[in-house]
Amino acid sequence: MSSDKSTNASPTAGKTLNLEQQRVRAAYMFLAPMLIMLLIVAAWPLFRSISFSFTDATANTIFNGQSEWIGFDNYVEKKVRSNGTVRWKGVLVDKDWWNAVWNTVRFSIVSVALETILGLLVALVLNAEFKGRGLVRAAVLIPWAIPTIVSARMWGWMLNDQFGIINEIMLTLHLIDKPIAWTASSDTAMIAVLIVDVWKTTPFMALLILAGLQMIPRDMYESARIDGIHPLRVFWRVTLPLLRPAILVAVIFRALDALRIFDLIYLLTPQSDSTITMSVLSYRELQQFGDYGEGSAMSTLLFLIITGFVLLYIKLGRVDLSGEKS
């Protein structure tokens, strides 16, 4: 009886808080400024953007509140012309949008796959012990440190159709017989984008995987070597399974980044339909055409796609992103 009184009465008594209650209260106070900030700069704008996608807002009406609620018309709208023919309008029936979706997905899958494989290779090299490893690691960090805009410009210059060094090298090696307009031609624009992205982001991937590699105890390799197991077998049977969590997390981070890619494509291949992604198309709609309704509808769709992807990935891969359980 006395125990019931002491434990259950304390929260309501409220005079003195016990340690746990004090800490939880402090925690809420510590979190409050961050949460308020995120509500203002992230949640509210997100809510407004989604709201815009249900209105006919344009650059002229966005600030004066004269835009009108039009429901899902930005997404899909059935229009019956006076002569009776039915036409569908809206983002979901827009072939430019689907082209951008396809470009984004294509880019994300290929770039993340390439970066994972190359990143794994680089990580394996960096994990080996050899002279000058520190220097190599430093060199590998350079692409990562260079701003995307700068790397877009640098590679834009190197991939230039007339004066670019890449064409020059390939011509000298007789890999091609005439210069290629890498960024301008629709056949190669995506390749150009992929080259730059892989160059810039593989280091990030390699470092994440390397960290995972370094958590595998060395004795494991040594005992495998003593048992005379072939290194390749060790790699498939020991290293790769142990790396799985590290790779899964790295892949999801990269994939999320790839799905929202904007600056590289905006700058490297500005006019190309074969590389335009969801972010770029949505931006063009918003800023260049001033169609805030349709542009917001596109960005909302991208948001939904990314959210769906994350949920799916967490469910399938059972990734512990929060790190709580480790």
Binding site: R260, F262, S282, Y283, G295, F303, V310
Partner: peptide, 11 residues
């Protein structure tokens, strides 16, 4: 992780 473009018009 979420795409910057998704908040652009609201922001």
């Amino acid at each position: 992780m979420f795409p910057q473009i998704a908040v652009l018009s609201g922001l």
